[in-house]
C-alpha cells in the first residue's frame, strides 16, 4: 500500500478511535452493574432505540421519494431544493429545535392551529422526539439515496418503461431494488444520527424521563453531577448501537450475497 494513503488512513483511524479508547480506559467498570440497574437508564435506552427507529421509518417514507425527486425529476429549482434539504445538516441542532417550535409548537404556524382545534400540543411528547430526530437525521438518508440513484443506471428504468411499466411500477420494481444497498446505508446513517441526537430533541421535545429523555439527554445531565456515571451510560449507548448495526449488517450481507 502506498504511504501517502496508508499514513493518513492510520492517522484517521487513530483520530476516530482514540477518543473511544479514552472512554473505555477511564470507564469505572465495576460501576457498570449498579449504573445499569439505576432507575431510568433502561427506560432511556428503550426510548432511544424506539424513537431512533421510528425516526428512521419516517425518514424512509418521506426521504426516499424526496431523493427520487432530486435525482430523477426534471423539476426546475432542484438545486435550490437540494440545498434546502441539507439545511438541517448545517443548522445547529438547538436552532433546529427552536425552528420546530416555530412551526409545530403550540404557538407555531401549524402546531398553533392543531392546538386550537384539538387541544393537542406536540412539544414534550415522544412524538416530538421522533420529529426532532427525523428532522436532523433525514438529510443523511436523502443524500445517500440520491447518490445511489444518480449512480444507478437510469437506462434500466427506460427498459422497464418499454416493458409497460409506468413510473410508479418502475420505481417499486426496478429502481428501488437497484438502489437498495444505498437505501440501507442511508438508513443506517440516519438511525445512528437519530440515536445520538441531542440538541434538537432537548429543545423541541424537552427532557422528561419515560416520555422524552433519550440516552444522550440522560448522559448529558448525568455529566453535570457524575462524569464517571456519564461515561458508563455513553458506553452502554455505544455498545447497543454497535451491536445493532453489526447484527443488521450480517443480515444484509447474507441477503446481498445472492447478487
Amino acid at each position: 500500500m502506498p504511504a501517502p494513503l496508508l499514513v493518513p488512513a492510520l492517522l484517521g483511524v487513530a483520530f476516530l478511535v482514540l477518543p473511544l479508547l479514552g472512554l473505555l480506559v477511564r470507564a469505572p467498570w465495576s460501576e457498570i452493574g449498579p449504573q445499569l440497574a439505576r432507575p431510568g437508564v433502561g427506560e432511556a435506552l428503550r426510548l432511544s432505540l424506539v424513537s431512533a427507529t421510528l425516526a428512521t421509518a419516517v425518514s424512509l417514507v418521506l426521504g426516499v421519494p424526496l431523493a427520487w425527486v432530486l435525482a430523477r425529476s426534471q423539476l426546475r429549482g432542484r438545486s435550490v431544493l437540494r440545498a434546502l434539504v441539507t439545511v438541517p445538516l448545517v443548522l445547529p441542532p438547538v436552532v433546529g429545535g427552536v425552528a420546530l417550535f416555530l412551526v409545530l409548537g403550540r404557538q407555531g404556524i401549524v402546531g398553533g392551529w392543531l392546538y386550537e382545534a384539538t387541544g393537542f400540543s406536540l412539544p414534550f411528547t415522544t412524538a416530538a422526539v421522533v420529529i426532532a430526530e427525523a428532522f436532523v437525521a433525514m438529510p443523511f438518508l436523502v443524500i445517500s439515496v440520491e447518490g445511489a440513484l444518480r449512480a444507478a443506471d437510469a437506462r434500466f428504468e427506460d427498459a422497464a418503461a418499454t416493458l409497460g411499466a409506468d413510473r410508479w411500477t418502475t420505481f417499486r420494481r426496478v429502481t428501488l431494488p437497484l438502489v437498495a444497498p444505498g437505501v440501507a446505508a442511508g438508513a443506517v446513517l440516519c438511525w445512528a444520527r437519530a440515536l445520538g441526537e441531542f440538541g434538537a430533541t432537548i429543545t423541541f421535545a424537552g427532557n422528561f424521563p419515560g416520555t422524552t429523555q433519550t440516552m444522550p439527554l440522560a448522559v448529558y445531565l448525568t455529566l453535570q453531577r457524575d462524569p464517571e456515571a456519564a461515561i458508563v451510560l455513553s458506553l452502554v449507548l455505544l455498545g447497543v448501537s454497535l451491536a445493532t448495526l453489526l447484527l443488521l449488517r450480517d443480515r444484509w450481507l447474507g441477503r446481498g450475497a445472492v447478487r
Binding site: F156, A160, V174, P177, L178, A180
Partner: peptide
Amino acid sequence: DHLLFPHL
C-alpha cells in the same frame, strides 16, 4: 448491453 434487471 441487454439491460436485464440484475435483481431479478
